[in-house]
Amino acid sequence: MEKSRITTTTNSMTILTVLNKDNFKIEKEQDVVPFRNRVKEHAVKIGMGLVNQTKLITAASELVRNMLRYANGGEILIEVVSKIRENGIRLTFTDRGPGIENVERAMTDGFSTGKSLGLGLPGAKRLSSEFTINSVVGKGTIVTIIKWKNG
């Protein structure tokens, strides 16, 4: 069995319906801005307000940067999801990088193994409505965030 460290943080276990799917590959730094624009398009389409849009895109930007810095890129699944009466955007970031050795420590403000501010993961979590991270050392990391239209 693979030795893995898994941290899951979700607010609710409600069943989600996926309304729309979209894949995006990140290979180089220049992909970041087009990716952000794609996320914005979807957010605008479901009528998300400007502030929540900005929070979602900023969180996405942090996570994409992590993917580029530590795993040389990866793939992102952009989904429009719906729960009882609310719509939202779910982003799933999948990379085949080195993985995170200590997820708990990576989720603390100001911790960074690179030369950054160490706000990426904890900041992205604060900006999202729901946040899940799942990392296996040597295999890669999957981060999923959801931002509800009104949350």
Binding site: K55, T58, E62, L119, L127
Partner: peptide, 14 residues
């Protein structure tokens, strides 16, 4: 700075 950006930066912790 736009309001949405300011609010986001505060939430981000910056």
């Amino acid at each position: 700075m736009q309001p949405a950006v300011a609010i986001t930066l505060i939430e981000l912790g910056l």
